[in-house]
Nucleic acid binder design. Structure first.
Lengths: 387, 387
DNA sequence: AGGTTTTGTTCGCACCTAGAACATAATCCA
DNA sequence: TGGATTATGTTCTAGGTGCGAACAAAACCT
């Protein structure tokens, strides 16, 4: 739970509204009102009042539950057709996607366009975002953008594959939350994937680079400057190979798409060819090598951080599918002896390629599903409604 | 803040009592009632009721504040002479110490005894703990024990230097909270040291081994099996040197007391000689070497985790004092380029050798300064008092 | 069709905190 | 030295909240 706690009887109501709305969202708009009432420890009467207030304010709407059980039928609180939506944007090296998420997490792709990576693409993106925002008005409550590179202080972005350096994204897209793609994939996994319900988990996102995040109780550990998750930049494999990041010997370089392309003698920055390599039996050795290194790195992180579970997204599941054995050997070898009898499992993401968008939507809703966010919504529509 | 939030108007009172008591403790029993009232956002009337209730239940007592300001004088809520205490035990390889901490953190050493490390020492310790607990009854509310080795699931302890393997400490000392010494030193630093007030910090504790913890908002990130903090067991320095932990190439082996002893040709497990080496100019090279490795390791952790600040305790401050330059060179070299312009500072602990005890006391009080802990205290004394 | 079960609805009650009005005790200043 | 000022403690009322009991409703079971 991320609620900070009420102090006055007035805040109590607000906090319980947030708790209820959050529970609806977290459970994918699947839970019945009676389940929510029980799980949140509310009296039935209180729950009725809270649900009513959310419905009155167009935050949720209650639909009949499918029957089959005894007793008076209950309802399923779900997204209101005029209710809040989060805008989620996934900006990849070759393509951007805009989607809208409603309460519960259901995603609708609104727009998708390939691009060449020249800077003016940001203008196109800004225009498209503004267009969708006004088209959906007043429903959008927050917008979040995923970017494939380190982000400092929520502003400055480097995207190595496009040659972008220190782009001030906050100036280009004011009011938009930004996050690293790997961190957001991790967030998605924490909320709606294999990490859900676990206390401490480690998620790795393999693309051109290797990124990831440590997840604690459903939230990624945020770096001081917003640049955590650069988990690939540790010298875990000996060697002094210089890394584009400026350090040397970074293990992440030997795992991602570029490593596969390099090992098989192709040009860099070609994601589709990397996928082919992963799919083709001819390149088993290159994939095995990446899996080797991945195992070494994960073992080191597990030793240091002791997660319950490790999940992989991006190219990770492909590597796992092709070279599980190679990975497992180096993984176990690198573990401290006492961890070997029951090591944290390494599992593929449960979410597929939309993980990053899902994570961005969660990030956006996180700012809304708070006492402040809810207050804004309620006061904004106070003038109109009064029933 | 670690309060989870009230749900009912009844819980509200309890949560506000906890918030107030926690604030008293966190601020070292230095804050005045009017400061606490403001900082917690309470009405003066409410604060009066809460303070009164805490006083009535012998949790705090209010003393006159030193004057000098205008207006009606306020009081300083501090520990009650019959109020709760936490028992903190530091078990080192050669010595154990028992101390009592009162609200606000003031520590009194109750007992201290050198030992040889044979297993019956646990019986002596148990006896001493029981004796002090009954002598102070009914004040002790929790006991926490710091141990110099990894702890699994809060039960099984390995202490390499003593040859202890898989000792079931929960069976030997039922009802006692146990924690790794490095993790508890980190906790102390987070609550009452240099990490206080920072969001994300990294603390390293250098003794025979190298341990530490990542601190988020005042709390160490807890490992899934209680065995996080084994941060020294990553292969960051090349080489295949086997480590007693079962893995190979662990950087922590080249930093601690054993590394210094090895480099200068002495027998292992001699802490006082390690301190001499640190103090003697004749062994500058050995200390420089340890500092080198420490810099490498810290840079890798900073790249991956992005802390605001790195703190060192145990032998760390000594290494820093002697070889700050050597450390700084490898530290900067290992950082990603964009982190170099403003890298997180590396500072010595502000707490000295008592850090581990302080951390144990904080751990114990953490279980008391909760709605549950407070309820237990209040109901326990309900039969007697009623004023 | 009547009994059973589960849930929604209504309402009185106990509890909490805010805030206003007043009391108190220190400093400041003439 | 004594009144003005200021900040804080104390007291009390009002508004708001959730709980829980009693009742109503709507499904399933036999």
């Amino acid at each position: 739970m991320r609620t900070t706690g009420a102090r006055t009887s007035g805040e109590l109501r607000l906090h319980n509204l947030v708790r209820l709305l959050r529970a609806v969202h977290e459970r994918g708009a699947q839970a019945t009102r009676s389940e929510l009432t029980r799980d949140l420890g509310l009296a039935r009467g209180t729950a009725a009042v809270l649900v009513g207030e959310l419905i009155n304010n167009e935050l949720i709407r209650e639909e009949a539950a499918h029957q089959g059980t005894r007793g008076r039928p209950t309802g399923i609180p779900g997204p209101h057709p005029a209710g809040p939506v989060a805008l989620a944007v996934d900006f990849r090296e070759d393509l951007w996607t805009i989607a809208a998420a409603e309460l519960g997490g259901a995603l609708t792709v609104l727009d998708e366009r390939p691009h060449r990576g020249s800077l003016p693409v940001l203008d196109d993106l800004t225009e498209a975002m503004a267009r969708h925002r006004t088209a959906l008005a007043p429903r959008p409550v927050a917008t979040a953008l995923a970017l494939p590179g380190p982000i400092r202080d929520g502003r400055l972005v480097d995207i190595p594959a496009l040659g972008w350096r220190e782009i001030d994204i906050a100036a280009a897209l004011p009011g938009v939350l930004v996050g690293n793609d790997a961190t957001l994939a991790a967030l998605a996994e924490a909320r709606r994937g294999a990490l859900r319900g676990h206390g401490l988990g480690l998620h790795l996102h393999v693309e051109f680079d290797l990124g990831g995040a440590l997840i604690l109780n459903g939230d990624p550990i945020p770096g001081a400057r917003g640049a955590a998750g650069e988990i690939g930049h540790m010298p875990l494999i000996g060697g002094d190979e210089p890394c584009p990041c400026g350090a040397a010997g970074c293990w992440g370089n030997e795992v991602g798409a570029n490593a596969l392309l390099r090992a098989t003698g192709g040009p860099p920055h070609d994601r589709s060819r990397a996928l082919e390599i992963l799919a083709s039996p001819a390149h088993q050795a290159a994939v095995d090598k990446a899996a080797d290194i991945l195992g070494i790195g994960i073992s080191a992180l597990v030793n240091a951080l002791d997660p319950e579970l490790v999940t992989l997204s991006g190219l990770g599941p492909g590597i796992l599918a092709r070279s599980a054995n190679a990975l497992d050997v180096t993984y176990r070898q690198g573990l401290m002896a006492f961890r070997r009898e029951n090591p944290p499992p390494i599992t593929p993401s449960a979410l597929g390629p939309e993980a990053t968008l899902i994570g961005a939507a969660e990030l956006a809703f996180d700012t809304f599903l708070t006492p402040q966010g809810l207050t804004d919504w309620l006061t904004r529509r106070a003038p109109r409604e009064r029933s």
